[in-house]
């Protein structure tokens, strides 16, 4: 056979080749060929048992899905480092007052600053905590909104969570706390990181009073 048609059926033609092992077979070393061929030892090729692999993947997926929880997570600004505590309670749905730098936010919306409290601290006027005017206005407005959107006989929960940096002086904490309490939010909690072996309770504390 000669010509182009005979080349096509040639076993040495590069496009048509007998299936088989290719890797490392061209190396002209005896021990390599022996190793590649198996050499009486365990073969280098291993088959994967698909059934057990899928079983394993299914178990992992189910475990991750069952433990997946988005509750209790809050977006915390970079500059805020939360303190840690062990005897904590589960998070609840309540307005969040955050202090980031010198700014105050209520549910991520600006609500004044803590400058008034810091100034009072510098001037030594610390006998009474400073009332943060903008924060008070915002909280009172939220309280009125809550009342207008709920039944008239429904009791106002007055719950609020404070997201404060761990280095904030107690006077500023007191000022934010005092303002929230004056605005009608008496059930106040601090946002913390859960640490070690805590005993998280669903309600507890004042919530059950």
């Amino acid at each position: 056979m000669s010509g182009p048609s005979s080349k096509l059926f040639d076993v040495h033609h590069p496009q048509i080749a007998k299936p088989g092992k290719r890797l490392m077979t061209h190396i002209p070393l005896h021990f390599v060929r022996k190793k590649v061929a198996g050499g009486g030892r365990r073969s280098m090729e291993q088959s994967l048992n698909l059934t057990s692999m899928i079983d394993f993947l299914m178990v992992v997926v189910i475990f991750l899905l069952s433990t997946f929880s988005a509750s209790g997570e809050q977006a915390v600004p970079k500059e805020v480092k939360l303190p840690s505590a062990r005897n904590v309670q589960e998070m609840l749905l309540a307005p969040m007052i955050a202090v980031a730098g010198k700014d105050v936010y209520v549910d991520s919306k600006p609500a004044g600053s803590i400058v008034e409290a810091l100034d009072a601290m510098e001037q030594g006027k610390t006998a009474v905590p400073t009332k943060l005017t903008d924060l008070e206005t915002k909280l009172k407005y939220m309280k009125e909104t809550w009342k207008s959107t709920h039944a008239s006989d429904a009791p106002f929960p007055g719950m609020v969570v404070l997201q404060l940096d761990e280095k904030l002086p107690a006077f500023v904490v007191k000022s934010v706390f005092y303002t929230a309490a004056l605005s009608g939010y008496a059930n106040i909690s601090f946002l913390v990181n859960k640490k070690g072996k805590g005993q998280p309770t669903e309600g507890g504390g004042a919530a059950k009073e």
Partner: peptide, 14 residues
């Protein structure tokens, strides 16, 4: 997945 969950510590004003 988030394993560092947050919590609250109650400090009532009542």
């Amino acid at each position: 997945a988030v394993w560092s969950s947050m919590a609250r510590i109650n400090a009532s004003a009542q």
